[in-house]
């Protein structure tokens, strides 16, 4: 029983990591309909941002989102304005462009760091807490809590603020939104910037858990796509629930079957969900097709 509780807790915490990484990816896909292959690299940049803030200002990585998120937001806006916007109306080319961006960012950081692994530590890095029979690291609990807060904040903003409503309107029908006077291009740029900023937040919170390397972003991106598709394309709560499902599936199959089989089990669940609910658990029926439909 203790083992089961322990592994459920581990799965939940891992789900928090996936939810956090998928939040920005889902926002970008939901609004702009771009499959952003460089999202993992944005997370990696967030990690190196936390490292830079720690080295330059002695800032704890858990405080570094204060500087990293705005920086990533600006980077996201620049990437959209100068790389993706000129390719508007060429969805396949936009996807290839994000793949090119992935290579540029990864190799750029590789050139800067020489590939040497880096670590960022916080005063809580090595603290683990015991809750009944379960022992878990405090940084992981913090990731789950902040992933929940970030999801709730994004959901609230999209639902109740004017900008959020504009983002949802563009996500639903960009032509109608344009006719209603919404500056669609500005909303795209805002959404991409926000997606990058959330990746930056994920990077800052995950930096104390991992040894940083320029290739680390690639490790996150595959499960993150599974999370987004499982939860429902473009659905904010879907990304969170999808993250938790993926985390629990991985942890349970890794412990009770074999760690080597956990990805096989995860993608088996992924295929079953897709067959039964093509739009994902929280997606709107038909949303999965919108990305393929030409919109201008």
């Amino acid at each position: 029983m203790t083992a089961l509780l322990n592994i459920l807790a581990i799965g939940l915490l891992l789900g928090g990591i996936y939810a956090l990484v998928s939040l920005g990816l889902n926002l970008i896909f939901g609004v702009i309909r771009i499959v952003n292959f460089a999202q993992g690299e944005f997370v990696m940049l967030g990690m190196y941002g936390a490292l830079s803030a720690s080295l330059a200002m002695g800032m704890d990585p858990y405080l570094s989102p204060v500087v990293v998120m705005p920086a990533m937001f600006i980077l996201g806006c620049i990437v959209y304005r100068f790389i993706l916007r000129p390719l508007q109306g060429e969805p396949m080319m936009q996807i290839f462009a994000t793949f090119g961006l992935l290579m540029v960012i990864e190799n750029g950081i590789l050139g800067l760091t020489g590939g040497i692994g880096q670590n960022v530590s916080s005063f809580i890095s090595s603290v683990s807490v015991r809750i009944g029979p379960i022992q878990i690291g405090l940084p992981r609990i913090l990731v789950l809590v902040l992933a929940s807060v970030a999801t709730a904040a994004l959901w609230w903003c999209l639902r109740y603020t004017l900008r959020g409503k504009a983002i949802r309107a563009v996500a639903q029908d960009r032509k109608a939104a344009r006719l209603m006077g919404i500056d669609v291009e500005q909303i795209f740029m805002l959404s991409f910037g926000l997606g990058a900023a959330f990746a930056g937040l994920a990077g800052c919170l995950l930096a104390p858990l991992y040894t940083l390397s320029p290739q680390i972003g690639m490790n996150f991106i595959m499960p993150a796509f599974a999370v987004v598709v499982l939860g429902g394309l473009g659905s904010v709560p879907g990304a969170f629930v999808g993250g938790i499902i993926v985390g629990l599936t991985e942890a349970l199959s890794g412990f009770y079957l074999d760690p080597a089989l956990k990805h096989a089990v995860l993608f088996m669940v992924f295929i079953i969900v897709l067959v039964l609910r093509p739009a994902g658990l929280f997606g709107v029926s038909g949303a999965e097709e919108v990305g393929l439909r030409e919109q201008s």
Binding site: I10, I17, N219, F220, E250, A251, P259, A260
Partner: peptide, 12 residues
């Protein structure tokens, strides 16, 4: 065993 690219190895 585990994958060198695993996000989490607590199960191992």
């Amino acid at each position: 065993s585990h994958s060198a690219k695993a996000i989490d190895v607590t199960d191992s």
